[in-house]
Amino acid sequence: MNAQELAVSAARQCLSTGRKSLSVPQSLDVATQLVAVDLALKPALLYDINSASAEQVYQFLRSCQSSRIVSEALVTLDLNDNSFIINLAAARSNLERVLDNASPVVIDVSSSLEKPAITECVRTGLKNIAQELLLLLRRFDTTKEVDQGIYVAEGSEVWNLSAVFGLLLGYPATYWFDQTESFENCLAMTPLTVTKAFATWPANAISQKYCLYSFSIPAVLQNETLSVVEKWKLGLHERFQQQNVLKDLTICHSAVTLSSVCL
């Protein structure tokens, strides 16, 4: 079997819930994103296709590593029952940029606001979280086999997961809201600009485009965030040109307005 077939087999075997296995398109989607993480095109993958456990995600990764689909540089991260597969080197580099105030833009979408706004007041808190995550990641040597996934210990339950996910996934902008006030947000009926990045994994005749990134920014803040988004796009293009596994990178923008937005 080729790499795609091996990855599909691993996904369907390891990530099933109950009697239901992932479909072939779903399996190819998660496999392509996994390859993108291995190539450092993105620092992490958040597994949210179904309710597979952190242990199942770990077994899927180990199966793909055993088949040499991806390298040993990837590990799993369990954050409040949310499962990530991360590239240790890329994730460290991304979190170090957070500590250097290089990224991301933090957008306050607290429900008390009339409209979203860029904020700096929570950056210290996010930098503290980034530092804690870095300390965890630095305990692992990428040249050695990792026998278990990384588990984020107690204390993380008070983190604003929307903001932390943006840090881990390498977005140029991340949402934050005051969860002591409410877990609601002010994005309902707010025009959003959605940015998506697609690529193909042409290991065989299948040349379907798969989504590597998807994030949104309120249209009212588009001009203020334009430079950081353009810098993010340039960095992605540069990383893409340094590999020859995934092809046909496409970055597109669309406008949406939703009656409710769940973060």
Rank of each mutant, 00 (worst) to 15 (best):
K196H: 05
L221H: 05
V245M: 10
P191D: 08
S207C: 15
E184R: 10
S207V: 15
V194F: 01
V220I: 15
A205S: 14
G235M: 09
Y213F: 11
S207Q: 13
T195R: 06
Y213C: 00
L249M: 07
L246I: 06
T190S: 08
T180I: 07
L187Q: 07
T190A: 08
R239I: 02
F215V: 04
S182H: 10
S207D: 13
L187M: 08
L249Y: 04
V220Q: 08
L234A: 15
N244E: 09
P202W: 05
F240P: 05
S214P: 04
Q222V: 03
V220H: 04
L236G: 06
I206W: 09
K247P: 01
L212R: 01
V229G: 03
Y210W: 14
T225V: 13
L192D: 05
L192G: 01
L249W: 01
T190M: 13
C186Y: 05
N204M: 06
A219Q: 13
K233N: 12
I251W: 01
F240E: 00
E224A: 13
E184W: 07
E224W: 04
T195F: 12
S214F: 04
K209I: 00
L246F: 02
L226G: 04
V194A: 06
K247H: 14
A219K: 11
Q208F: 08
V228W: 00
N244V: 03
A197R: 03
